[in-house]
């Protein structure tokens, strides 16, 4: 009967953290399922919202950057060029927005039940991923319309998706923890998201950035992700700038590692300060 023995000691409660994370996987699944269910039940237009946002932004960006700004399109229909970047960007942005508020939104749960707190921001990222998949269907439509299909490179897409996940998770954890500690941090998040949209190569390709600034530009972790998406989906029409991509990878890994560390560090006190 008593097959498990739990020892709670001052300063040592998190010893079995990763094992606990695995044990609570069902809770993780259910929280993500709840967030997804609620998201599509609550908004009157439901799924349309996940589609409309990137679609309309894409139209505006195509007009502004493609038609008015006459940015180079590398022989790809501009809407597709923009939309392929819009997908990971939108995923990243809504991950940040949702996860940063997620702990405060679940304050009740946190002060009443134990589970690895990492589950909550992670489930917010999963919800954003579902939006990403739905918005992805539109890409298929666009590609069919323009008769533009990806080649074998599309098989590498999951790897880039993984990088996008890591970036969203890392940045999300930072913001989530900071948001619990400093309650006015939520005003900073929309700014980061809005600012990020302009410093990431969404409306244009990163090829327009002068060569000597390329590496510096790649410090923005989304540059690597977006370039990767374009490279994988647009049949290599846009080149992948390797040093920049490696730098982005390093930044993503750093953000993720420090994000987890910071989150874990503050996590123990969440129930006391929330």
């Amino acid at each position: 009967m008593a097959d498990e023995v739990l020892v709670i000691e001052a300063g040592h409660t998190e010893r079995h953290y990763w094992r606990d994370l695995w044990r609570y996987r069902e809770l993780f699944y259910f929280l993500a399922w709840r967030d997804i269910l609620v998201r599509y039940k609550q908004t009157a237009i439901g799924i349309a919202w996940a589609v409309l946002r990137p679609l309309l932004t894409m139209v505006v960006f195509t007009v502004v950057f493609g038609m008015l700004g006459k940015f180079p399109s590398h022989g790809v229909p501009y809407p597709i060029l923009v939309y392929v970047a819009m997908l990971p960007w939108q995923f990243f942005a809504s991950s940040l927005a949702d996860s940063s508020g997620s702990l405060i939104g679940n304050a009740n749960l946190i002060s009443k039940v134990y589970f690895p707190r990492l589950i909550i921001p992670a489930s917010a990222v999963i919800t954003a991923f579902v939006d990403f998949l739905i918005a992805g269907v539109i890409l298929l439509g666009l590609m069919a319309w323009y008769g533009f299909w990806p080649d074998w490179r599309v098989l590498t897409l999951p790897a880039f998706m993984l990088v996008a996940f890591a970036a969203a998770m890392g940045a999300g954890l930072w913001l989530t923890a900071l948001n619990v500690k400093y309650r006015d941090f939520r005003y900073v998040v929309p700014f980061i998201v809005q600012f990020g949209l302009y410093i990431s190569p969404v409306g244009f390709t990163s090829a327009v950035v002068p060569e000597r600034w390329r590496l510096l530009y790649s410090i923005n972790p989304m540059v690597g992700v977006i370039d990767g998406f374009r490279w994988a989906l647009l049949g290599g029409k846009t080149a992948l700038y390797v040093p920049g991509f490696v730098l982005s990878l390093i930044v993503v890994a750093t953000v993720l590692a420090t994000g987890i560390a910071y989150f874990r560090g503050t996590e123990r006190t969440f129930a006391d300060i929330i």
């Binding site: 739990l6 020892v7 709670i8 000691e9 001052a10 009443k112 129930a271 006391d272």
Partner: peptide, 14 residues
């Protein structure tokens, strides 16, 4: 396990 103790030890079987 919602919050951590400052001192002491707990052992729970089950």
């Amino acid at each position: 396990r919602i919050t951590e103790p400052s001192k002491g030890r707990i052992r729970i079987a089950g």
